[in-house]
């Protein structure tokens, strides 16, 4: 992503594109399966429609966001302890 032009995407960008499409493909399959497979949950809420997907998605966003806030508090220069 450092030197690509919009006309000729770099190998990394191409890989990123393939990866995203594959993920979306699997996500759609999982969405479809949700109509056929009964998932057992520890609590009833866990059995609600696409619950693990939502939980995973939100948990990920939350972790990254808290990480960003944490940076403001506990990130120091590399030579902090030297």
């Amino acid at each position: 992503m450092s030197t690509p032009s919009s006309k000729s995407p770099s190998d990394l960008q191409r890989l990123g594109g393939i990866f995203t499409k594959a993920l979306l493909g699997i996500a759609i399959v999982l969405f479809g399966l949700e109509f056929f497979i009964h998932r057992h949950g520890v609590v009833s809420a866990e059995e609600s429609f696409m619950f693990p997907a939502l939980y995973g998605f939100l948990a990920f966003l939350f972790i990254v966001q808290v990480g960003k806030w944490l940076r403001l508090m506990i990130m120091r220069k590399e030579d902090y302890y030297d």
């Binding site: 995203t20 866990e46 995973g56 998605f57």
Partner: peptide
């Protein structure tokens, strides 16, 4: 089947969150 799809949903949609970010 239920256990596998639960885990896959958690992981794949978390990865989608990464891609979005």
């Amino acid at each position: 089947a239920g256990h596998v799809t639960s885990q896959m949903q958690l992981l794949i949609f978390a990865m989608l969150a990464f891609v979005v970010l």
